[in-house]
Design a binder for these strands. Structure first.
Lengths: 240, 240
DNA sequence: CGCCGTCTTGCGTAAACCCGCAGCTTGTCG
DNA sequence: CGACAAGCTGCGGGTTTACGCAAGACGGCG
């Protein structure tokens, strides 16, 4: 059995290497990649079936890399090992995992035991392992309770990118008014009005900009999500 | 000599611990804190004069912690040890370092040698050590060439927070028109127009929102900067 | 001192945004 | 089938933005 480790940080990389050796005696080869780009290449070259992947890398982040890897070989087992459980990450991962694929999401703050257990569960038993904390987010985010619909999230991303209502309408094939409806919905859910100040007179917020800020502060958005969205946007723009 | 290490990640913490021991034989005690809050407390209790500090920690980030520590004891020597050289961080640090204080900014990607050298330079020689890469940013950001004035940065933050023109005017004691002037200046420098699409007809950007996005993508802003700005804003709001 | 560049402010306008109101289309359920 | 909720759309109008134009204010500099 071969395992591919994709991780920015040398310290974490060697820690992972050791953990893999300790948890998986049946593993005879461990390969390492220091960013997503190299990770993709190595995965392709070695036809890796077992990958441990960091999210948040400089050159090409874990979600991007995982997406192309899964596109080529959907049965690949990937364990995401991340510092954060931002909703943006969780949502990003959920969006790309193929049907029935075995994957995991473990936080770096987890204990050695948990990490090793996850390694065995995913790589040997083909079982999904999601950290409790992450799991919570996932439920909340997918269930509509207090969470955001895909369409709401979509429009959030669109205004975060800085599109006008009209542009959004064109992109999503909606009327102007519908876009604005969704925006209101979003403002509602994000409590933009509440923070907008009790006394309306003094200093109001720009709802659109404020919504993005709040989403950032709540980790609904983060740099990586923005980056991905921006790339998609450019793609769309190019495709006329 | 005592050294205080403030760092989230256990792996990095122990790495730092070793590095300090190796580089500073004259250091007899090393204390560790796993976040900014604890870091502040320990610094106070031990009257620490030598600190190695991570930026980007969950509970209270390095900039916040450093600010209060320097406020209490401005001659404290602090070495910032960070993963990133976002302009937002560099600017944040520059803003809080007291006159004549010795401090350093070294990236985690630097070699062992560089780290050890920096430790000795700062703690023994009281000399500032700024990584070349960070230095570059600093120059660019402070010199006006291609960089942003404080007033431009200020207004960038304000719209990122989601304030209206009117609110910004009130906060910064300016007229509405002046605020808008600065905004135009900002839009200019950020190249909002260029990205706004060559064909004006199709889909334009919302300049205000787009500016914030671009700033994020260029690391002029990041989560930590937003968080700090939001806290300041709340403070201002409370103070009527 | 007069000239000039930078910054501030006011006026006015076209566009974009926020949103209440109301008519339509769907899908679901009894 | 009728009722009802949820989403899309157009209309209308009040507010906010973006920005050209132009009149001061302030600070160097020859």
């Amino acid at each position: 059995m071969k395992v591919l480790i994709v991780e920015d940080d040398p310290l974490h990389r060697s820690y992972l290497h050791e953990a893999v050796n300790a948890a998986l005696p049946e593993c005879d080869t461990v390969i390492e990649a220091e960013n997503g780009t190299v990770g993709e290449k190595l995965a392709r070259d070695h036809k890796s079936a077992h990958i441990v992947m960091d999210l948040q890398m400089a050159s090409r982040n874990g979600i991007e890399a995982a997406r192309t890897i899964w596109k080529e070989r959907p049965e690949t087992r990937i364990l995401f090992w991340s510092n954060y459980s931002d909703e943006a990450y969780v949502r990003g991962v959920s969006r790309i995992v193929p049907d029935g694929a075995a994957y995991g999401y473990v936080l770096k703050s987890a204990s050695d035991e948990r990490l090793k257990l996850a390694l065995r569960s995913i790589f040997i038993e083909s079982q999904c392992v999601i950290d409790r904390e992450v799991r919570g987010l996932q439920q909340k985010s997918l269930g509509q309770t207090n969470g955001f619909t895909d369409s709401e999230y979509e429009i959030l991303v669109d205004i975060a990118l800085g599109l006008t209502d009209r542009a959004i309408a064109k992109r999503r094939s909606l009327s102007l008014r519908s876009v604005q409806n969704r925006l209101q919905q979003l403002y509602d859910k994000l409590d933009v009005y509440q923070t907008a100040g009790d006394d309306h007179e003094d200093g109001r917020f720009n709802l659109r900009a404020r919504a993005v800020t709040i989403a950032f502060l709540r980790k609904l958005l983060n740099y990586s999500a923005l980056e991905r969205a921006e790339a998609e946007l450019q793609e769309w723009l190019d495709g006329k």
